[in-house]
Every structure is written in C-alpha cells, then in structure tokens.
Amino acid sequence: MNIESPDKLVELLDRHAYLADEGLATAAFLALRMGRPLFLEGDAGVGKTELAKALAGLLKAPLIRLQCYEGIDAAQALYDWDFARQLLHLKAAEAGGVHDVGRLEAEVYDRRFLIARPLLQAIETQPSVLLVDEVDRADDEFEAFLLEVLSDFTISIPELGTVKASTPPVVVVTSNRTREVHDALKRRCLYHWLEHPDFDREVAILLRKVPGCGEQLALQVAKAAERLRAADLVKPPGIAETIDWTQALLTLGARDLDPDLAARTLGAALKYREDVQAVVSNGLLA
C-alpha cells in the first residue's frame, strides 16, 4: 500500500478506529517508508499494541505477536521441532519395515515437523506485521538475539538451511520501560515515546471506542482520568483503562460520572489497592 504522507496515515488509522497524533503518525510513516522497526515506549495502556493491530488492519496483513517475558529464549521465538510427531513417524516407519537410517533422519527433520514460532512465522509470511510486545520484560541475551534477527531477517536452521524474508515484515517493538532497553536495539529502530492522549483526543477515543457513550460521560471520564494521572499513583490509568471504566459505567446505566458510581467502578481504572484508597480518601472523584 502506498501511503503518501503522515496525514494520509492518520486518515487510514482513523478508519481502523485508531486516533494517532501528528508525532506518532510521522514516526510510523517513516518506519513504513524506510523499512525500519518502530520502537514504541511509554506507560502501559497508552495504545502501543493497538497501533500494531491498526497497522495490520490497514495493510491487510496478519498480525504476528511475540509476547516477551522473563526467561524467553531464541527457541521460543524462532522455531521448535515437533518431537511427538517425529517419534510417531519413526515408530510408523519401524512398523513398516523401514530401517534406512539416512532416509529416516532426512524424513524426521522435514519441514512438516517444524513448528514455526512468531519470528519465523513473520519472516515466512508476506506481508505481515510483527509485534514484539513488552521487550523490556526479556533479558539482555534475548535483546542481542533479537537485534541480530531484525538486522537482516534471516534465520539459519541447521537441518534445513537458511530462511530469509523476501519482503521484511513491518515491525513494531514495544516497551513499558520497566527497565532500560539497550541502545543497540533502539539504534536499529525509529524511536517514539507514546504519551497519554491529551484531553480532546481522549474524549474522541472514548466516543469512538465505546458504543453508546454520550459526550457528557466522555468529557467527565476524560477529565477524571486527567486528575488521576496528575495524582501520585502507583499506576495511573491509561487509555485502555479509561475505555474499560466508561464501559463499566455504561453497563450500570450511567449517563454522567456520578461520584458514588465512579467510586464503585474504580476497579476498572485503577489496579492497585493503594491507588483506589488514595483516590477515594482524597476526594479526587468529586
């Protein structure tokens, strides 16, 4: 798809229910045009993952997600052999009287027994959008491995040979900044810090994302979220939480943000007991 400008990308993302500001649209546009991974950093719930989903939608490409976590290694990101099926194949061959060791070895390491994990899936799928989510949860060794793969989108499988992407996937890497990601990986990418949306944008997002939400409720929830983010909370609400909060209020029949109902549904927006207690005791919902 030929996207002529950041403004055009804003328009296309809007059609997929993602309201991007000028800075984010410019970073995403450049990443698409330059063929570079887009590194999005910011608080949880500000829309990093949703951007990857919206890009996949507008590009009509599958979204392939690599969820990072502590202890993830190359095998869990690249590929694995289906040992159970390989063993069944060997037993079937033995039962059928096949004893040619060379033939069996070649068969057992056939491509049909290979389980493609997200990185290999993205390299073999054209076009595709690869989301490397929460890379800050992985360790340094995995970061170094990821940097190598993102450099040339080539994977070596000893039993089968080299697999190289004919068309590299669009790559979005996200981080919640629970730790600092090494500069080497960031240098490979185009970097953008994703802020919480401003007031007007948050209202527009709520009206778009929450069916049945009236302007009055959207304005009041966005204003309350603004106050909560200004408070000294363990985890201020992101846009994902304000959407959940609005949906919870609508489910209970609210048409405006009544302080009592807001307090009773606060668990949709805040996820720490200390935060809920601080908000209620300080009258931040009044």
Score class of each variant (00 low, 15 high):
Val170Asp: 09
Val170Ser: 06
Leu233Ser: 04
Phe199Cys: 08
Leu228Arg: 01
Ala222Met: 04
Asp260Trp: 13
Val221Asp: 08
Cys189Lys: 03
Val234Glu: 15
Thr174Gln: 00
Ala218Trp: 12
Gln220Ser: 02
Glu241Pro: 06
Ile243Pro: 08
Arg179Thr: 03
Val234Thr: 14
Glu241Ser: 05
Phe199Glu: 14
Glu180Gln: 15
Val170Ile: 13
Gln216Val: 13
Val234Asn: 11
Gly214Leu: 05
Pro236Arg: 00
Ala204Ile: 02
Leu233Arg: 01
Trp245Tyr: 15
Leu228Asp: 05
Leu217Met: 07
Pro197Tyr: 07
Val234Cys: 08
Pro211Ser: 08
Arg188Cys: 11
Arg255Met: 12
Leu233Gly: 01
Ala248Cys: 10
Val203Ala: 00
Leu249Met: 13
Arg188Trp: 13
Leu217Phe: 11
Val173His: 00
Arg201Trp: 11
Glu226Pro: 06
Glu195Arg: 11
Val173Leu: 14
Arg179Gly: 03
Asp198Cys: 08
Ser175Glu: 08
Glu226Gln: 14
Pro197Val: 15
Arg179Glu: 13
Gln220Met: 04
Arg188Asp: 08
Ala231Met: 13
Leu250Asp: 06
Trp245Val: 03
Leu228Glu: 01
Trp193Pro: 04
His192Glu: 11
Pro237Glu: 01
Pro237Leu: 07
Asp183Thr: 12
Lys235His: 10
Asp232Gly: 11
Ala225Asn: 09
Glu226Ser: 09
Thr246Ile: 01
Gln247Arg: 15
Lys223Leu: 10
Glu195Met: 11
Arg255Asp: 14
Leu228Cys: 06
Lys209Leu: 01
Arg177Phe: 12
Asn176Pro: 11
Ala231Asp: 10
Glu202Gln: 12
Ala254Tyr: 13
Leu252Gly: 05
Asp183Arg: 14
Leu194Glu: 05
Val171Arg: 04
Arg201Val: 13
Leu250Trp: 05
Ala254Thr: 08
Lys209Glu: 15
Leu207Gly: 00
Pro169Val: 07
Lys186Met: 10
Glu202Ile: 05
Leu228Val: 00
Ala218Ser: 07
Glu215Leu: 08
His182Cys: 07
Arg255Ala: 10
Leu207Gln: 01
Asp256His: 14
Gly253Ser: 01
Leu185Asp: 12
Arg255His: 15
Arg208Glu: 15
Arg229Glu: 04
Asp244Val: 00
Lys209Phe: 00
Ile243Met: 08
Val172Phe: 05
Glu215Pro: 07
Leu233Cys: 08
Glu202Arg: 06
Ala240Thr: 08
Arg177Leu: 15
Lys235Asn: 11
Asp258Phe: 02
Ala231Val: 02
Gly253Met: 12
Leu257Asn: 07
Tyr191Val: 14
Ala254Cys: 10
Asn176Met: 12
Val181Phe: 06
Ile243Lys: 05
Ser175Trp: 05
Ala184Ile: 07
Leu219Tyr: 11
Arg201Met: 12
Gly214Gln: 09
Pro197Thr: 13
Asp198His: 09
Val221Gln: 04
Ser175Cys: 08
Leu217Val: 09
Asp244Glu: 15
Leu206Asp: 00
Ala225Lys: 04
Glu241Cys: 06
Thr174Lys: 00
Cys189Tyr: 05
Ala222Ile: 02
Arg179His: 12
Gln247Ala: 15
Leu228His: 00
Leu185Ile: 13
Thr174Asp: 09
Ile243Tyr: 06
Asp258Ala: 09
Asp183Trp: 05
Glu215Lys: 08
Arg208Ile: 00
Thr246Leu: 03
His192Gln: 11
Asp183Leu: 05
Leu206Thr: 05
Ala248Met: 10
Arg229His: 10
Gln216Lys: 14
Pro211Gln: 09
Leu249Ile: 01
Lys209Trp: 09
